[in-house]
Amino acid sequence: MSENRYARQQILPEFGPEGQQRLADSSVLILGYGALGCVHGELLARAGVGRIRIVDRDLVELTNLQRQIAFDEHDANSQTPKAEAAARRLRAINSSIVIEAEAIDVTPRNIEAFIRDVDVVLDATDNFETRYLLNDACVKFEKPWIYGGVIGTEGVTMAILPGTGPCLRCLMPDAPTAGSFPTCDTSGVLNAAVAIIASWQAAAALRLLVGSMPPQQRLVSIDCWNGLFNSFAVNKEDGCPCCGLRNFEFLEAKRTAWTTVLCGRNAVQVSPPQAVNLDFTALTERLQQAGRVLRGGLLLRFQTTETEMAIFPDGRAIIMGTTDEAKARGFYAKYLGI
């Protein structure tokens, strides 16, 4: 008799042989493959989820290695697409499951194709624009998804089960204003905090997939550095623009940042979904944590080892040195927040 690689999991009463078979027959989408996604992939591939789809637009960089546990120095030196490095690793971990990987930017135009044929979506994105888009798509197509976000030494997570409980816009009706909030690149992030939140998300997904009682639809916050754990009740709002009124503004691309390649300039302009009035003093303070900031007249010039951008008071930014729109959106999300 051959050894059962899932033996230690299958003897859990929460799983059993039936639960294990359900996992083998199920599929997940990991949207984004940064620090959260790396943990999701490891746990779900090892647990035996039958089909794992990975979608990420980014390349591996040296500064990722502090917390993105799937990658190594070779991946960073060769600037391997994260989706490619992740697929290689997960196939090496478990050759009996199917790994699908795409190095692509998720947009209102393509998100439906990524979520339609999976059972649950794990949020491993690093920006709110994609999360609100994911929320719209998942509510519209009644797909469960698990929100996770981290900043500093803490993070939050909530299972969102469309039709039965609150969605992201019941919790936060409007997306945060572009360029007005901290990101991991400007405020830092503790690797252990990401691992805890990602593990919590993975457990919620496994619980859904094995057909156990659905996870609680409460917002959980954990600060592992200060030893704090809290869980909060969130109500489904009848007037919620998304799950209440079924007004899918992000999916219909009414609330999406616009990118334009600036011909002949090797640059891309990113415009936030709505006009903003940036607080240059606060933004300078945040950006100085990540690179060099020069304030002059009507704009801020910001430079790091990987990018250079000019930022205007209305939230518009010109990202220099690239004509790749997905890459430019990525830099905007990383440093200004969107």
Partner: peptide, 10 residues
């Protein structure tokens, strides 16, 4: 009373 900033890193 608990107050949170946008928590969106990943």
């Amino acid at each position: 009373l608990a107050l949170f900033p946008p928590v969106g890193g990943g």
